[in-house]
């Protein structure tokens, strides 16, 4: 009697059970993965637009002026409005800088502190200069800047979602 390749009934039955069990597992797991990941995979069509911030004349040289605006977005079955904000810094008559108020460390909102002459983050005591450079604290890089343009004496910033 040589080596037998015959599969016993027991083994066959075990194999079939395992096979169908696996198919069912995969049959539910694969769609479920798509189902869970779905909102992350939909781009939502990142929106880009120019946001008007009013006449340039209202900004004084050297004083950071806070601004904010709200955008609404359709998420699933609901509209969500998100607030964005920052500071317009007029460095000279012609030079502008528009900074985001989102701390580059962990995303808290920074505020301008007149007395300290710095943007201070309430979360981990980070401080930024009027130009957005890091003075102290954990942030890895200066505050982010908005791209901007001036048309007919009005200031616009470029807003890109996400």
């Amino acid at each position: 009697m040589g080596r037998s390749y015959k599969v016993s009934r027991r083994d066959f039955v075990k194999l079939v059970s395992g096979f169908f069990g696996t198919i069912m597992g995969a049959g539910i797991a694969l769609p479920a993965i798509g189902y869970v990941l779905d909102p992350a995979l939909k781009s939502g069509g990142a929106r880009e637009q120019w946001i008007p911030l009013g006449p340039v004349d209202q900004y004084q040289v050297g004083v950071p002026a806070p601004f904010n605006f709200t955008r609404t977005q359709v998420n699933g079955w609901e509209r969500t409005s998100s607030s964005y904000g920052g500071f317009v810094v007029r460095e000279s008559e012609t030079d502008f800088k528009v900074l985001s108020n989102i701390c580059t460390h962990l995303g808290c909102r920074v505020a301008w502190e007149e007395t300290e002459n710095a943007y201070v983050c309430p979360c981990h005591d980070a401080a930024f200069t009027v130009d957005g450079e890091v003075i102290s604290g954990p942030p890895p890089r200066p505050l982010d800047e908005y791209e901007f343009k001036i048309e007919d004496g009005n200031l616009f910033i470029f807003f890109k979602e996400g």
Partner: peptide, 20 residues
Amino acid sequence: WPDSIYKDVLVSFALFLLLV
């Protein structure tokens, strides 16, 4: 295992196909 479970799995699989 495996005699009963084998039948159980086959029936469950049929139900699974039916549901899908």
